[in-house]
């Protein structure tokens, strides 16, 4: 029983970190409707930038992390400007293909700049674990989860209350209608990609601290999809619920099934969950259920 509780609790906390990964994806869907296959790679880039700033350049933490966020926002806006804007009148197939290409570019570029070795991120909080009632959680996971909750709240507020947030949702709903109401589509697209970049910087910092910075982190990109498919492609609440579900599936299968089914099953289990969700409820728990079955 105590093992089960431990697995559940750490699953929920890790789930918050998955929600952070998915948030960057959701922001792009909300702002431009593009299914972004490069978010995982952008997160890896963020992890490498933050690790390079903090260790090689020696910038202090309070400056290094915000600086990474700024750098990655510029990267995100640059991706939109130079890769996606030239395609803005093309089909969705072309846009999605462009994000796949971007993923491949970043996957090649990152080890060419920083090499193949494992890097680390100096941790702000010492590597302890919190112990409550016999359940232990690494400090970094705990505080990251708290940060994610605050961030998710802020984005939820932004999308439901602010003028720009509503404009972004309008664009993803219907580009032409939004444009004819005077919404600046280019601005909206650029802002959503910049936000995705900034979120990727934070996700890179958190996941890099947890797992070490290394190009194998790109597997996180594949784990975004179970989160957003379960939660609904453009729902922030969905990203939280989906993230927690993925965290639980991963943690429980790591605890109980890895020995029987082979090492690494816990990474694949969320992907199997993804297939099951697609079979049952393809638009997710919180997605817009207006699906055209044609």
């Amino acid at each position: 029983m105590s093992e089960f509780t431990q697995l559940m609790v750490s699953g929920v906390f890790t789930g918050m970190l998955y929600a952070l990964l998915a948030l960057g994806f959701v922001v792009v869907v909300k702002g431009s409707g593009v299914i972004n296959f490069s978010q995982g790679e952008v997160v890896v880039l963020g992890a490498f930038v933050v690790s390079w700033l903090l260790t090689d350049v020696g910038v202090p933490f309070w400056l290094g992390v915000p600086a990474t966020v700024v750098v990655m926002m510029v990267v995100g806006a640059g991706i939109e400007r130079f890769a996606l804007r030239p395609l803005q009148n093309e089909s969705m197939l072309a846009l999605v293909m462009a994000t796949i290409a971007l993923g491949s570019i970043i996957r090649g570029l990152v080890p060419m700049i920083w090499g193949d070795g494992l890097r680390s991120i100096p941790s702000l909080i010492d590597q302890r674990r919190y112990e409550w009632f016999g359940i232990s959680i690494p400090t970094i996971t705990f505080w990251s989860a708290v940060m994610v909750l605050i961030l998710l709240g802020a984005f939820g507020f932004f999308f439901s209350r602010s003028r720009l947030g509503l404009a972004m949702q309008a664009v993803s709903d219907d580009r032409v209608a939004a444009q004819s109401l005077g919404i600046n589509i280019r601005l909206v697209n650029a802002v959503s990609w910049a936000m995705a970049g900034g979120i990727a910087a934070l996700a890179g910092y958190v996941w890099g601290s947890l797992l070490g910075v290394d190009s194998r982190l790109v597997v996180l990109g594949a784990l975004i999809f179970p989160v957003v498919i379960l939660g609904g492609l453009e729902s922030i609440v969905g990203a939280v619920i989906g993230g927690i579900a993925v965290g639980l599936v991963e943690s429980l299968s790591a605890g109980y099934l890895n020995d029987d089914l082979g090492a690494g099953f816990s990474t694949v289990a969320p992907l199997i969950m993804l297939l099951l969700v697609l079979f049952v409820r393809p638009y997710g728990l919180f997605g817009r259920p207006e699906i055209e079955r044609v």
Binding site: I35, F37, V268, L271, L274, P282, E292, R293
Partner: peptide, 22 residues
């Protein structure tokens, strides 16, 4: 993934890729 409109097949086949590799 093909029962619904959109490019969901790309997502499902990405999962296929990782599942087969595993």
């Amino acid at each position: 993934s093909l029962r619904v409109k959109g490019l969901y097949l790309a997502i499902a086949t990405l999962a296929a890729q990782y599942i087969v590799q595993w």
